[in-house]
Design a protein around this nucleic acid. Structure first.
Lengths: 218, 218
DNA sequence: CGATAGATTGAGAGTTTTCAACCGATGTGG
DNA sequence: CCACATCGGTTGAAAACTCTCAATCTATCG
């Protein structure tokens, strides 16, 4: 096998065929759990439609939103690759349609599509960067900056999904009330526009500049 | 290429030979920087002797200790796999001797030792779990619990290294003074023993039980 | 032995959370 | 179609945890 580093993650058309041949279609409704923390992985998932969140509950009851998966994302690859139990619970944030690969099949896919392992590795590499940068933010930035950055990130990833204050907070380590307060302030300063439960960013760059300016006032 | 999942990370003897054949020995002194955040990766490292830390500075000046690498660990594989700039700085925590593989060579190793990519993937998978669990802890647990768990983790990983209060704090999002206060309390309760700058845990399990008990009092 | 890095301790400050009450939107069943 | 239940959002006041700052002490090393 010749491994080309820096190549595109995968040949989409080839992969799509493999998914058709080996995947089993499954459907979940908003709020459904795909799998629970502690479960043993028995396959991996590929999202055809919808949004899925990976969450983790602390013993004291507080939840974190660790990752967000949209269309064309895989789910469950981390635990699959090390054959560990899941360390978080995945929940359908919208109605979801996906392909499910029982383990033998995922191995077949890996064999037929050698770039797949590289693809999975690269996803892990990006996830790791993201996780560690957010870890860093949690100790080095104030809530307002974390909330602004999370709002921008989440909106960019899923522009059509109505993120709740709770979800934004769980993504950056803030309580719902704190997110509300920050959003109210951001609206007061003219950077966003709250329409009912929805949030519209007027100008992403201005908002981020504002965030940076606040950091200097640390 | 036949990929065997769940196999041992690598055949140590075979890999060791490869390292000998293709690696270039390099030496660093305690405190030296192997590479800086923002640098472009030009190779990967394999530690023969010593301890290396991956740290990240927030704009406000606070540092995080993201990962710790000991003997037989690779360094720089994350950025290598996605061909991204480094997102953190690596510092020699002790004098260090390592093998350095310029990029072409790392690719040769990947080709000659196909399990290598799986090995790297599995390290990423474990790193990711670790990072996300610590992210979660940062929002869901109190300092005292984070410090206890970090102390146990770091001591377990590198029993012979004298972790400073600062390093322990940077690993779990706490200030040096807070670590000191917690350690003083833990000594008062008989769980640890401070001998000069060194810290001895009397009974790891009792200490962890104590931590859990405290969590219930949340 | 002096110099320097790390550790300790205290008092006070500050950010974020907690708790509680209330409001508003959305959706469902009668 | 209304009434009501529910979920999400808002706001305020008080509390709490952890940090900041500053002073002092102690190891360690050249």
């Amino acid at each position: 096998m010749k491994i080309k580093l820096g190549s595109k993650c995968h040949n989409k058309f080839k992969l799509t065929n493999l998914l058709k041949d080996f995947g089993r279609e499954r459907v979940f409704s908003k709020g459904d759990v795909l799998y629970n923390k502690g479960d043993r992985p028995s396959g991996i998932y590929y999202i055809q439609e919808g949004i899925v969140g990976l969450i983790n509950l602390a013993p004291n009851g507080s939840e974190s939103l660790l990752r967000v998966f949209g269309e064309e994302f895989f789910i469950g690859y981390r635990s699959f690759l090390v054959n560990e139990e899941y360390h978080g619970t995945t929940v359908a944030l919208t109605d979801v349609k996906l392909s499910y690969f029982p383990f033998e099949n995922a191995q077949i896919v890996l064999e037929k599509c050698p770039d797949m392992l590289l693809h999975l590795s690269q996803m892990l590499a990006r996830d790791l960067r993201n996780a560690e940068e957010r870890f860093n933010d949690l100790t080095g930035k104030r809530v307002i900056n974390r909330i602004i950055e999370s709002l921008v990130f989440l909106k960019q990833r899923q522009p059509n999904y109505q993120w709740t204050r709770r979800e934004i907070g769980e993504f950056c380590g803030a309580k719902t009330e704190t997110v509300t307060r920050v959003l109210t302030r951001l609206q007061g300063e003219g950077f966003i526009n709250k329409e009912g439960r929805d949030i519209n960013i007027n100008d992403v760059n201005k908002l981020l500049d504002y965030s940076e300016k606040l950091e200097l006032t640390y």
